Amino acid sequence: MIRVLVCDDQVLLRTGLVTIIDAQPDLEVVGECGDGRTAVDLAGKVNPDVVVMDVRMPVLDGIEATRLLAGAGVPNPVKVLVVTNFNLDEAVYQALRAGASGFLLKDTPTAQLLQGIRTVATGAALLDPEVTRQLVGKYATRIRPADGEPQDIPLTSRELEILRLIALGLSNQEIAETLTISRETVKTFVSRILAKLGLRDRVQAVVYGYRHGMLD
């Protein structure tokens, strides 16, 4: 069973999410709340595998809650899937930088949302492809390095090519079809990229790529 904590300040929406998630044979809602502070406190008590997190909430917003649950230096990070109404929003960018493992819009089809929870639970990252393209495009200049900052690009040309496709929001299968290689080969390359860069997931890889001038 995948243990899920749902955090959203809209009661009706939160209730709907809890009902949908709890109806799945492999998913179990172990807690729900309406603000980030309670989410952080509850996570320490119920030990969720995934926190489904809204962004804009009272007391403590989803960004800071994500940072406390999954940010750099957290001893036992929790996987966070951000689900929000906001598409190209500063808060979404900040949530991903804070350590979120994935991001989906609230109007995402139910089946895709449920699969997103399962995907994040496995340790993989998840980004809505269209949102990824727009989000990265909007904030790329902000996260690029300052002029004159030394660049160290330890990736091969093939690894860079795959990183660029990841930045476009392509799945492993779509990358495999684009490059005419097997899905397993893509998975191997992705794992190698993360290992070389010392990163946790695809989200961090995309941010890292732009910050270090690897992506245009």
Results as ranks from 00 to 15, higher is better:
Met53Val: 10
Leu88Asn: 05
Gly73Glu: 10
Leu60Ala: 04
Asp89Thr: 01
Ala95Gln: 01
Val80Asp: 00
Leu81Met: 00
Pro77Leu: 00
Val78His: 02
Arg56Asp: 14
Leu60Ser: 02
Val74Asp: 08
Asn85Val: 09
Gly71Arg: 11
Asn76Trp: 00
Gly44Pro: 09
Leu42Gln: 11
Ala91Lys: 04
Asp89Ile: 00
Pro48Gln: 06
Glu90Gln: 09
Ala91Leu: 12
Arg67Tyr: 02
Tyr93Arg: 05
Ile63Ser: 04
Val59Glu: 15
Thr66Lys: 08
Val46Asp: 08
Lys45Met: 14
Leu42Lys: 12
Glu64Thr: 11
Tyr93Trp: 03
Gly44Thr: 09
Leu60Cys: 08
Gln94Asp: 12
Leu88Asp: 05
Val80Asn: 03
Met53Tyr: 08
Gly62Met: 07
Arg67Ile: 11
Asp54Ala: 06
Pro58Arg: 13
Leu88Thr: 02
Leu42Cys: 06
Asp89Val: 01
Pro77Cys: 05
Ala43Pro: 06
Gln94Leu: 12
Leu96Phe: 00
Met53Ser: 14
Arg97Gln: 15
Pro58Trp: 13
Thr38Tyr: 02
Val55Phe: 03
Pro77Met: 00
Asn85Trp: 00
Asn87His: 03
Asp49Trp: 13
Ala39Glu: 07
Leu96His: 03
Gly44Phe: 13
Ala98His: 09
Val46Glu: 14
Pro77Ile: 01
Leu81Lys: 01
Val74Trp: 10
Pro48Ala: 03
Arg56Cys: 13
Val83Thr: 07
Arg97Phe: 03
